[in-house]
Design a protein around this nucleic acid. Structure first.
Length: 583
RNA sequence: GGGCAUGUGGCCUAGCGGAUAGGGCGGGAGGUUCCUAACCUUCCGAUCGCGGGUUCGAAUCCCGUCAUGCCCGCCA
């Protein structure tokens, strides 16, 4: 609803400027501080002041006099407050907000007819997902949900690096070592089983004699060469490892849940000839040169001083070459491409963008979101190869355990009349625990580095998922009681200041989706949900529903509770967090 | 050495050109004869790393500087 009101505000401001014969495009819209009744404001008078030779408040008055709000539906009044023009909402604004928010479509912006592929996670299929990587699926999944809500046609992809040396080494180790010379798996799932071969292989190479090393390297190289020439048998051998490990990783990511519409294999761009074709095009580019037999692009014109090598001197392609073919494939099939990348890939991301530019692509269609690493407190690094770090599975298990303990601790003094059976308790623990993890990650700007600490990541109070989820549970509690008391919801116009503030918070939701999607910033949704939850808690404190002073008040408040519940659920859903009915 | 990112009260964080810098944690003081206290109220606590500049206006933009992280391979 705020989107509509802002539209009206822009219209009347533009009309007023035209009437005054003033040419100015920037309308200076901003959010007014809380203490004002206005829902949107303009600071236009500041900028016009010097040009018109008048003081800002005088300009504001003049604009105010020229503004005509006879035709507006959602703007009740526009006031000149000092240099600001403040727009306050009409009864229709509140009424229609509560009405619209009671339906699921409130969280969906109109379709844009623009397809976008969101590539995220894309971790090498070498073993269990550790929390250093967990930021990627959590941000990526939220971005995909956000863009979907914002009206884009979204498809999610996991790009599988099945072609490099790591996978060749893994395949060799899998075929070479026996299970009985390996330690027991840390968990009963396929990637925990297979990663033991990968670790064993790396370990072996590190302490192998010269002869052993040569022999092993020869086998690993043979696998890499087989992939390069598109040998079917080699591809099958590598796939045996890749597909199994990937199955396990997919199961782990599914717990978040993070899901993928498609797993796109790197080898597919070698096997279909697109990498070779791309290399030929790059060679003929004005920026290509040969250096010691290898081909590279000189990217000085893009302010990148590191050349981009796209073909080895032995004629084989590199990971980045194939990724280039991969991206051109994305451009052929989608209008936009969004990629979530760890900050370690910053330079590569810039080189990729420049190379795509050289190949004649419109790189504005590519959005690369970089996120900082998750570090461990002691500065210890996480490595699948060495088996260090914290696994995502362990984090989620711990989160659920702590949440379950919390639910059980509260059992004694809970007063809500619903009986929680074992299965329900387990479900709540699951929703709360995993929600807390996701919220902790998604609520921070991706570019900031995170130091992982159990107690902070799994805090169930205040600025956290459980805080927001609790609001949803509170709504459900009231709705359940109202139903038993025979109270019917009826959309009305809020009168109490806490009702008004809550309705205004709800009215912002579609606007928040729009701005968050425009900037690819899901953390804005988490910030918004906190504000919505605060507004609801104030309403909960001040405005009884079941025991309202009269039936009419009870009915209009119940409608507001319905609208709140739906909005909170939709908001949590954008972040991939469940909304429990009871806690 | 070069590049990119980040620097906001003891700790975490929002804001990223406009109305007295919002929250949370921690600390102090309160609130439950119940629409679930995973909540609420209140107090204490910030020269927005530092120095310049641009602007009517800077945490926000520019320059410099310091600190931290990441990257700089014919690896992925």
């Amino acid at each position: 609803m705020l989107r509509s009101l802002r539209g009206e505000f822009r219209d009347v401001l533009r009309d007023a400027l035209e009437a005054e014969g003033i040419d100015e495009d920037d309308l200076g819209l901003e959010d007014p501080p809380e203490e004002f009744d206005a829902v949107v404001a303009s600071n236009l008078a500041f900028r016009l002041a010097s040009r018109l030779g008048e003081a800002p408040p005088v300009v504001a008055q003049r604009l105010h006099a020229a503004i005509d709000i006879d035709e507006t539906r959602y703007i009740e009044a526009i006031e000149a407050v000092g240099p600001y023009l403040n727009a306050t909402p009409s009864d229709a604004y509140y009424h229609e907000t509560i009405e619209a928010a009671g339906t699921p479509s409130f969280a969906a912006l109109p379709p844009r007819d623009i397809s976008v592929v969101v590539e995220h996670t894309s971790a090498n299929p070498t073993g269990p997902v550790h929390i250093g990587r967990a930021r990627n699926p959590i941000i990526g999944d939220a971005v995909a949900r956000l863009l979907d809500a914002a009206g884009y046609e979204v498809e999610t992809h996991y790009y599988v690096n099945d072609a490099g040396r790591q996978m060749a080494l893994f395949t060799w180790a899998y075929e070479t070592f026996d299970a009985d010379e390996l330690p027991a798996p840390e968990r009963d799932r396929i990637e925990y089983d297979l990663v033991r071969y990968y670790r064993k292989g790396n370990e072996y190479l590190e302490q192998a004699s010269r002869d052993e090393l040569e022999e092993a390297e020869a086998e690993i190289n043979a696998i890499m060469q087989g992939l390069e020439v598109g040998d079917d048998e080699t591809y099958e051998r590598v796939s045996t490892v890749v597909d199994q490990v990937l199955d396990g990783m997919t199961a782990c990511l599914g717990r978040l849940p993070a899901t993928f519409d498609q797993f796109v294999k790197e080898t597919s761009f070698m096997r279909d000839g697109s990498t070779d074709a791309l290399v030929a095009r790059l060679k003929s580019s004005a920026y290509a040169e040969q250096d010691d037999g290898a081909w590279q692009l000189v990217l000085d014109d893009w302010d990148i001083d590191k050349p981009f090598v796209f073909l080895r001197s032995d004629g084989t392609s590199l990971y980045t070459t194939r990724d280039l073919a991969h991206h051109e494939w994305k451009f052929e099939n989608f209008d936009k491409a969004v990629t979530i990348l760890g900050e370690g890939h910053g330079l590569q991301a810039e080189q990729l963008r420049a190379a795509l530019d050289i190949l004649g692509n419109d790189t504005d269609r590519l959005e690369q979101i970089l996120y900082g690493w998750v570090n461990l407190p002691g500065g210890e690094s996480m490595s699948t190869r060495r088996g260090t770090g914290i696994q995502l599975d362990d984090l989620l298990d711990e989160a659920i355990d702590r949440a379950r303990a919390e639910v059980e601790r509260r059992m004694d003094d809970r007063i809500r009349e619903d009986e929680l059976d074992e299965q329900t308790i387990e479900q709540i623990a699951h929703d709360v625990g995993i929600g807390a993890v996701r919220y902790d990650i998604v609520s921070k700007q991706p570019t900031k580095a995170i130091t992982f600490e159990w107690d902070r990541a799994l805090d169930f109070e205040a600025q956290s998922a459980p805080f927001v989820q609790y609001v949803h549970a509170r709504c459900c509690g009231i709705i359940d009681r109202a139903e038993r008391a025979g109270i019917e919801a009826e959309v009305g116009v809020p009168s109490h200041e806490s009702e008004i503030a809550l309705t205004e918070a709800i009215s912002r939701f579609p606007y928040e989706i729009e701005t968050a999607a425009d900037t690819f910033a899901p953390h804005r949704i988490s910030t918004y949900l906190l504000e919505l939850a605060d507004a609801y808690n104030a309403f909960y404190r001040d405005c009884p529903v079941i025991d309202a002073s009269d039936d009419q008040t009870a009915s209009t408040r119940l409608a507001l509770v319905d609208a709140s519940r739906q909005t909170v659920e939709s908001g949590l859903n954008l972040l991939g967090i469940a909304a429990p009915r009871s806690m």
